[in-house]
Protein backbone atom coordinates (compact mmCIF):
# COMPACT_ATOMS: atom_id res chain seq x y z
CA UNK A 1 0.00 0.00 0.00
CA UNK A 2 2.77 2.34 0.99
CA UNK A 3 4.81 1.37 -2.04
CA UNK A 4 1.80 2.11 -4.23
CA UNK A 5 1.36 5.54 -2.65
CA UNK A 6 5.05 6.31 -3.18
CA UNK A 7 4.71 5.29 -6.81
CA UNK A 8 1.72 7.61 -7.31
CA UNK A 9 3.58 10.57 -5.78
CA UNK A 10 6.56 9.79 -7.98
CA UNK A 11 4.23 9.72 -10.99
CA UNK A 12 2.78 13.11 -9.96
CA UNK A 13 6.07 14.86 -9.33
CA UNK A 14 8.80 13.17 -11.40
CA UNK A 15 7.79 14.71 -14.76
CA UNK A 16 7.64 18.19 -13.21
CA UNK A 17 10.97 17.58 -11.48
CA UNK A 18 12.56 16.63 -14.80
CA UNK A 19 11.31 19.80 -16.46
CA UNK A 20 12.81 21.81 -13.61
CA UNK A 21 16.08 19.84 -13.69
CA UNK A 22 16.61 20.30 -17.43
CA UNK A 23 15.87 24.01 -17.20
CA UNK A 24 19.29 24.18 -15.53
CA UNK A 25 20.98 22.13 -18.27
CA UNK A 26 23.84 23.89 -19.98
CA UNK A 27 23.25 21.80 -23.11
CA UNK A 28 20.17 21.76 -25.32
CA UNK A 29 19.27 18.10 -24.77
CA UNK A 30 16.22 16.78 -22.99
CA UNK A 31 17.89 13.52 -22.02
CA UNK A 32 21.55 14.25 -21.27
CA UNK A 33 22.38 16.60 -18.45
CA UNK A 34 25.64 18.20 -19.53
CA UNK A 35 26.22 20.66 -16.73
CA UNK A 36 24.57 23.20 -14.47
CA UNK A 37 23.76 26.58 -15.92
CA UNK A 38 21.23 29.34 -15.50
CA UNK A 39 21.75 30.62 -19.04
CA UNK A 40 18.21 29.63 -20.13
CA UNK A 41 16.72 31.77 -17.39
CA UNK A 42 18.83 34.67 -18.60
CA UNK A 43 17.62 34.12 -22.15
CA UNK A 44 14.01 33.83 -21.04
CA UNK A 45 14.18 37.01 -18.99
CA UNK A 46 15.76 39.00 -21.80
CA UNK A 47 13.23 37.76 -24.39
CA UNK A 48 11.01 40.79 -25.03
CA UNK A 49 8.09 38.78 -26.50
CA UNK A 50 8.07 36.59 -23.45
CA UNK A 51 8.23 39.54 -21.06
CA UNK A 52 5.36 41.27 -22.89
CA UNK A 53 3.28 38.10 -22.62
CA UNK A 54 4.13 37.87 -18.91
CA UNK A 55 3.08 41.46 -18.39
CA UNK A 56 -0.24 40.86 -20.18
CA UNK A 57 -0.90 37.77 -18.08
CA UNK A 58 -0.09 39.56 -14.83
CA UNK A 59 -2.32 42.55 -15.62
CA UNK A 60 -5.21 40.36 -16.81
CA UNK A 61 -4.92 38.01 -13.82
CA UNK A 62 -4.69 40.85 -11.31
CA UNK A 63 -7.58 42.90 -12.69
CA UNK A 64 -9.90 39.94 -13.34
CA UNK A 65 -9.18 38.39 -9.93
CA UNK A 66 -9.75 41.72 -8.16
CA UNK A 67 -13.07 42.31 -9.93
CA UNK A 68 -14.05 38.68 -9.36
CA UNK A 69 -13.25 38.93 -5.63
CA UNK A 70 -15.19 42.20 -5.20
CA UNK A 71 -18.28 41.35 -7.27
CA UNK A 72 -18.30 37.69 -6.23
CA UNK A 73 -18.23 38.64 -2.55
CA UNK A 74 -20.91 41.31 -3.04
CA UNK A 75 -23.14 38.76 -4.76
CA UNK A 76 -22.56 36.18 -2.02
CA UNK A 77 -23.59 38.74 0.62
CA UNK A 78 -26.51 40.07 -1.42
CA UNK A 79 -27.88 36.60 -2.04
CA UNK A 80 -28.26 36.17 1.74
CA UNK A 81 -30.92 38.87 1.57
CA UNK A 82 -33.13 37.44 -1.17
CA UNK A 83 -35.72 34.68 -1.48
CA UNK A 84 -35.02 31.04 -2.23
CA UNK A 85 -36.03 31.26 -5.89
CA UNK A 86 -33.63 34.09 -6.79
CA UNK A 87 -30.89 32.31 -4.90
CA UNK A 88 -31.55 29.07 -6.82
CA UNK A 89 -31.32 30.95 -10.15
CA UNK A 90 -27.94 32.40 -9.19
CA UNK A 91 -26.69 29.07 -7.85
CA UNK A 92 -27.58 27.62 -11.23
CA UNK A 93 -25.76 30.42 -13.09
CA UNK A 94 -22.63 30.10 -10.93
CA UNK A 95 -22.62 26.32 -11.40
CA UNK A 96 -23.12 26.75 -15.16
CA UNK A 97 -20.19 29.17 -15.37
CA UNK A 98 -17.98 26.59 -13.70
CA UNK A 99 -19.23 23.52 -15.59
CA UNK A 100 -19.33 24.93 -19.14
CA UNK A 101 -16.05 23.92 -20.84
CA UNK A 102 -13.48 26.69 -21.26
CA UNK A 103 -13.41 26.12 -25.00
CA UNK A 104 -17.14 26.94 -25.18
CA UNK A 105 -16.71 30.05 -23.01
CA UNK A 106 -13.95 31.21 -25.35
CA UNK A 107 -15.92 30.56 -28.53
CA UNK A 108 -19.21 32.02 -27.37
CA UNK A 109 -17.53 35.16 -25.99
CA UNK A 110 -15.67 35.58 -29.28
CA UNK A 111 -18.83 35.15 -31.36
CA UNK A 112 -20.87 37.53 -29.19
CA UNK A 113 -18.17 40.22 -29.02
CA UNK A 114 -17.51 40.17 -32.76
CA UNK A 115 -21.24 40.74 -33.35
CA UNK A 116 -21.44 43.50 -30.77
CA UNK A 117 -18.36 45.28 -32.18
CA UNK A 118 -19.73 45.08 -35.72
CA UNK A 119 -22.74 47.08 -34.54
CA UNK A 120 -21.01 49.40 -32.09
CA UNK A 121 -17.99 50.44 -34.13
CA UNK A 122 -19.92 52.01 -37.07
CA UNK A 123 -22.29 53.66 -34.60
CA UNK A 124 -19.35 55.04 -32.66
CA UNK A 125 -17.73 56.29 -35.87
CA UNK A 126 -20.94 58.06 -36.86
CA UNK A 127 -21.38 59.75 -33.50
CA UNK A 128 -17.74 60.55 -32.77
CA UNK A 129 -17.07 64.29 -33.01
CA UNK A 130 -13.32 64.03 -33.72
CA UNK A 131 -11.37 62.66 -36.66
CA UNK A 132 -10.31 59.22 -35.40
CA UNK A 133 -13.11 57.41 -33.56
CA UNK A 134 -11.98 54.73 -31.09
CA UNK A 135 -12.21 51.17 -32.41
CA UNK A 136 -13.54 48.59 -29.99
CA UNK A 137 -11.77 45.28 -30.34
CA UNK A 138 -10.59 42.15 -28.62
CA UNK A 139 -7.86 42.65 -26.07
CA UNK A 140 -7.25 42.97 -22.35
CA UNK A 141 -10.90 43.85 -21.74
CA UNK A 142 -12.31 40.74 -23.38
CA UNK A 143 -9.89 38.37 -21.61
CA UNK A 144 -10.63 40.03 -18.27
CA UNK A 145 -14.39 39.81 -18.89
CA UNK A 146 -14.30 36.11 -19.82
CA UNK A 147 -11.92 35.09 -17.01
CA UNK A 148 -13.78 37.22 -14.49
CA UNK A 149 -17.13 35.69 -15.42
CA UNK A 150 -15.80 32.28 -14.48
CA UNK A 151 -13.70 33.24 -11.46
CA UNK A 152 -16.37 35.54 -10.00
CA UNK A 153 -18.63 32.48 -9.86
CA UNK A 154 -15.84 30.57 -8.12
CA UNK A 155 -15.38 33.33 -5.52
CA UNK A 156 -19.15 33.64 -4.98
CA UNK A 157 -19.41 29.89 -4.30
CA UNK A 158 -16.47 29.91 -1.87
CA UNK A 159 -17.69 32.98 0.06
CA UNK A 160 -21.29 31.72 0.10
CA UNK A 161 -20.12 28.46 1.69
CA UNK A 162 -18.27 30.47 4.33
CA UNK A 163 -21.24 32.75 5.07
CA UNK A 164 -23.51 29.70 5.38
CA UNK A 165 -21.25 28.40 8.17
CA UNK A 166 -21.23 31.70 10.12
CA UNK A 167 -23.04 31.89 13.45
CA UNK A 168 -26.11 34.15 13.23
CA UNK A 169 -26.16 34.86 16.97
CA UNK A 170 -23.15 37.16 16.92
CA UNK A 171 -24.68 39.26 14.12
CA UNK A 172 -27.93 39.50 16.05
CA UNK A 173 -26.07 40.47 19.20
CA UNK A 174 -24.33 43.25 17.30
CA UNK A 175 -27.67 44.52 15.97
CA UNK A 176 -29.20 44.37 19.45
CA UNK A 177 -26.37 46.53 20.73
CA UNK A 178 -27.40 49.23 18.24
CA UNK A 179 -24.58 48.79 15.77
CA UNK A 180 -25.60 50.05 12.34
CA UNK A 181 -25.78 47.36 9.61
CA UNK A 182 -22.59 48.79 8.10
CA UNK A 183 -20.73 48.60 11.41
CA UNK A 184 -21.94 45.04 11.94
CA UNK A 185 -20.69 44.14 8.49
CA UNK A 186 -17.32 45.80 8.98
CA UNK A 187 -16.63 44.62 12.50
CA UNK A 188 -18.37 41.22 12.62
CA UNK A 189 -18.99 39.71 9.20
CA UNK A 190 -16.02 40.93 7.16
CA UNK A 191 -13.29 39.70 9.53
CA UNK A 192 -14.84 36.24 9.43
CA UNK A 193 -15.17 35.97 5.66
CA UNK A 194 -11.91 37.75 4.82
CA UNK A 195 -9.76 34.58 4.56
CA UNK A 196 -12.19 33.00 2.10
CA UNK A 197 -12.31 36.18 -0.01
CA UNK A 198 -8.53 36.26 -0.14
CA UNK A 199 -8.35 32.55 -0.95
CA UNK A 200 -10.93 33.13 -3.69
CA UNK A 201 -8.83 35.98 -5.07
CA UNK A 202 -5.70 33.82 -5.17
CA UNK A 203 -7.50 30.94 -6.86
CA UNK A 204 -9.01 33.37 -9.37
CA UNK A 205 -5.56 34.84 -10.04
CA UNK A 206 -4.05 31.37 -10.48
CA UNK A 207 -6.83 30.30 -12.82
CA UNK A 208 -6.53 33.38 -14.98
CA UNK A 209 -2.74 33.23 -15.02
CA UNK A 210 -2.76 29.57 -16.12
CA UNK A 211 -5.68 29.68 -18.54
CA UNK A 212 -4.85 28.99 -22.14
CA UNK A 213 -8.02 28.09 -24.01
CA UNK A 214 -10.27 31.06 -23.18
CA UNK A 215 -7.54 33.61 -23.90
CA UNK A 216 -6.67 31.75 -27.11
CA UNK A 217 -10.05 32.82 -28.52
CA UNK A 218 -10.60 36.27 -27.05
CA UNK A 219 -7.09 37.75 -26.71
CA UNK A 220 -7.13 39.39 -30.14
CA UNK A 221 -3.60 40.39 -31.08
CA UNK A 222 -2.35 40.13 -27.49
CA UNK A 223 -0.40 37.16 -26.19
CA UNK A 224 -0.78 35.84 -22.68
CA UNK A 225 2.05 33.82 -21.12
CA UNK A 226 0.35 30.41 -21.65
CA UNK A 227 -0.35 31.43 -25.27
CA UNK A 228 3.31 32.31 -25.73
CA UNK A 229 4.43 29.02 -24.16
CA UNK A 230 1.98 27.09 -26.33
CA UNK A 231 3.25 28.78 -29.49
CA UNK A 232 6.90 28.11 -28.58
CA UNK A 233 6.18 24.47 -27.77
CA UNK A 234 4.85 24.05 -31.30
CA UNK A 235 8.11 25.43 -32.66
CA UNK A 236 10.04 22.82 -30.70
CA UNK A 237 11.04 21.87 -27.18
CA UNK A 238 13.94 23.89 -25.74
CA UNK A 239 15.41 24.37 -22.26
CA UNK A 240 14.22 27.98 -22.45
CA UNK A 241 10.62 26.72 -22.30
CA UNK A 242 11.66 24.60 -19.31
CA UNK A 243 12.98 27.72 -17.60
CA UNK A 244 9.72 29.61 -18.24
CA UNK A 245 7.69 26.58 -17.16
CA UNK A 246 9.70 26.36 -13.93
CA UNK A 247 9.00 30.01 -13.13
CA UNK A 248 5.26 29.58 -13.87
CA UNK A 249 5.17 26.48 -11.65
CA UNK A 250 6.94 28.27 -8.82
CA UNK A 251 4.51 31.20 -9.02
CA UNK A 252 1.37 29.04 -8.95
CA UNK A 253 2.71 26.82 -6.18
CA UNK A 254 3.31 29.88 -3.99
CA UNK A 255 -0.24 31.09 -4.72
CA UNK A 256 -1.94 27.79 -4.00
CA UNK A 257 0.04 27.18 -0.81
CA UNK A 258 -1.05 30.61 0.52
CA UNK A 259 -4.67 30.00 -0.56
CA UNK A 260 -4.67 26.62 1.12
CA UNK A 261 -3.19 28.07 4.28
CA UNK A 262 -5.96 30.68 4.38
CA UNK A 263 -8.69 28.09 3.83
CA UNK A 264 -7.14 25.90 6.51
CA UNK A 265 -7.49 28.79 8.92
CA UNK A 266 -11.20 28.85 8.17
CA UNK A 267 -11.57 25.15 8.87
CA UNK A 268 -9.91 25.26 12.28
CA UNK A 269 -12.13 28.23 13.16
CA UNK A 270 -15.28 26.22 12.41
Amino acid sequence: MRAFATAVYLFLYAPIALVVLFSFNSGRSASEFVGFSTQWYGRALSNTFLMEALQTSLIVAFVSATLAAVFGTMAAIGLERVGGRTRAVFDGLFAAAIVVPGVVIGISTLVALVQVFSVLNPALAALWPGQAPPQLGLGYGSIIAAHGMFTMSLVAMIVKARIASLGRDIVEASNDLYATPLTTFRRIVLPQIRPSILAGFLLAFTFSFDDFIIAFFVAGSNNTLPMYIFASIRRGVTPEINAVATMVLAASIVMIVIARFLMRDKKTAD
Partner: peptide, 9 residues
Protein backbone atom coordinates in the same frame (compact mmCIF):
# COMPACT_ATOMS: atom_id res chain seq x y z
CA UNK B 1 -3.75 24.14 -9.37
CA UNK B 2 -0.52 24.42 -11.31
CA UNK B 3 -0.53 25.11 -15.03
CA UNK B 4 -2.10 22.24 -16.99
CA UNK B 5 -0.11 23.45 -19.98
CA UNK B 6 3.20 23.05 -18.14
CA UNK B 7 2.24 19.68 -16.72
CA UNK B 8 1.19 18.39 -20.14
CA UNK B 9 4.40 19.83 -21.59
Amino acid sequence: WTSMLVRTY
